[in-house]
Design a protein around this nucleic acid. Structure first.
Lengths: 338, 338
DNA sequence: CGGTAACAGGAAAGCGCTTACCTCAAGGTT
DNA sequence: AACCTTGAGGTAAGCGCTTTCCTGTTACCG
């Protein structure tokens, strides 16, 4: 374990130059240097397999090169899409991306903000909806404010903020679109498989659905699940069992919609289903899922762009990303399926 | 931009103590300190919103706390699963995970190895199959060796290595399983939708398939795609058009299998399909996909465990993860579908 | 031919933190 | 009473790198 790592000083010694010269050559500084020395230094670097210590560089230069990303769970396809967008533009800007999984635990979120802060990242992108509990939110805002005080930039996806730039998917409008679609098809008894009640995404999408229902003088039968496929299946099974009158259900994300499809197959019922997010899987299930599309990759890209671009003035920017209904085969007019 | 960040010295000054004391209190060192001072320092920390500079800490302590992960693409469900496993155990060990997307470009892989090396990560996990071009591989081994020389640990997933610990999914056996399954069902004309020819995963799975074919004195019609759903669909369409005699196809991953299903639907044909990896989507498509399961999350977990555990001796460990055939509805005996 | 501008390279001062070592007092020992 | 612990805190030496300022050469000028 007591391995000596080659340092700049080693390289310099070996090449018979000062560390200053070695550093300049290695970093391709503008200072002119003879080819002779350059060659010697480069040779020493190769021989010693020298790799500069990034921490020491950060410290000496005190510039920030990485960006941090907070997501609920990268392996969740929803966040995977967003992350893809984030990565794309971060890499294009030559930034290293540090991804932190919060697993929907506010405490972990706070912890990671500090950790990224400590690592002097240039910016933090917070993806995933906020929490309705204002305790957690204010604590979070506090931490984010502290980070911004040090010159760090923050962009949030899907939660409002009056201090940081935000990219806001049209969750409410999307919910409305989904509801409107079902009611226009003539459905009157509509069930909803919602996400965790504490998340703003759930609240927003639900609000849109309720607005559509109100416009048609209907009410909704809402049941809460956890945004996972299996959770959706269980919730759908319960919903179908207790409410035989339902003819359509809206799931607040595609994973749960897929679960609902499975539940329907199991109990031999056939309701219209509308999903949310239009994830890749939507077109590959049977029936192909009608879904409210949110351009997730774009969401990620825009957020990272905002995070990496200093704001024109000090007022935070907010960018709305519209939702769009993608009609497929899982929804049909009321009188008789198919 | 010229923001002054609070430093330890600021905290110390404000609390009227030396930086040594402040440091000890903040890090909960074992040195005893009066409650009086402790309170003053903690108060100063809170007031100044002090967050220690992680780079300076790394430098001073010269201990490594992060681990790096190289994957082709986190948003690919295959790697998302693996990454989930990696994250789980890394987090359990209190390690920060830095994820790097190589997008299947060997050059980027090299670059990232150096970058992680520079960041003094404790370990690097390389996920994703290797390349058959030995140029890239030797260069890569070089870089990895350099990293290991400095005391860093490396674990690779899915590629052989005689220098580092490796976790090896049973790709060849899996291919054999898939082939055996189809031939036992009586299929004689079997097509294969393979991945990029340059990847060892492709080569290994294909080898297993060929072994099964040979055992039954059959040959395979192989076409190469890119492991994506759309690539699989296109490849399948071409394959079906050119080879009307085929009655079954093996896709070297589930994404392409799903694409193949779509292609079949489009051109109204109905062959048996076997996929690979048993990703979550497999059970939700119609017909539910028969697939060779590789416990991806486990793969990730074991790799991270190896990476975080110093090897008992200096000989690299290799761990095999068995494959298992999951029979569903997409494969049936030859005489007549369904 | 003295003077100076341009060049090549080195010395050393940090960057923010940790920690080995030292100091000073107060209490305990014979 | 002289001596030694022990406790509580400070001093300062780095960790590996960048960069400002300096120094010693050489080349060019009038």
């Amino acid at each position: 374990m007591g391995v000596r790592v080659a340092t700049l000083a080693d390289v310099a010694r070996r090449a018979g130059v000062s560390t200053a010269t070695a550093s300049r050559i290695i970093n391709g500084s503008s200072k002119p240097v003879t080819d002779e020395l350059r060659a010697r230094v480069l040779a020493a670097v190769a021989e010693l397999r020298y790799v500069p210590n990034a921490h020491a560089q950060m410290l000496a230069r005190s510039n920030r090169n990485a960006v941090g990303v907070l997501v609920h769970d990268v392996s969740d396809p929803y966040f995977a899409e967003i992350t893809r967008g984030l990565q794309r533009v971060a890499t294009a800007h030559g930034r290293l991306v540090i991804i932190c999984n919060t697993f929907r635990e506010p405490a972990r979120e706070l912890e990671y903000i500090d950790l990224l802060h400590a690592h002097q990242v240039a910016a933090i992108v917070v993806a995933g909806s906020g929490y309705l509990s204002s305790d957690d939110e204010t604590e979070l805002h506090d931490r984010m404010a502290a980070f911004e005080t040090t010159g760090g930039r923050i962009a949030v996806i899907g939660r409002h903020s009056h201090t940081s730039d935000a990219v806001l998917p049209a969750n409410e409008e999307g919910g409305f679109l989904a509801g409107e679609h079902l009611f226009e098809l003539g459905h009157t008894a509509v069930g909803v498989i919602a996400g965790p009640a504490a998340l703003t995404t759930t609240a927003d999408r639900l609000a849109g659905l309720h607005r559509a229902a109100a416009a048609h003088s209907r009410t909704l039968t809402v049941v809460h699940a956890d945004f996972t496929r299996d959770g959706g299946e269980a919730a759908a099974a319960a919903l179908l069992a207790e409410h035989p009158e339902l003819t359509a259900v809206a799931a607040l994300n595609d994973s749960m919609a897929v679960g609902a499809l499975a539940a329907m197959r199991t109990c031999g019922r056939n309701l219209s289903v509308v999903g949310f997010d239009d994830m890749p899987i939507a077109r590959d299930v049977t029936p192909a899922l009608t879904s409210v599309r949110l351009p997730l990759t774009r969401l990620g890209e825009r957020a990272m762009e905002l995070a990496l671009t200093p704001p024109p003035d000090s007022t935070p920017r907010a960018e709305h990303i519209p939702a769009e209904l993608i009609r497929r085969e899982s929804t049909w007019p009321l009188p008789g399926p198919r």
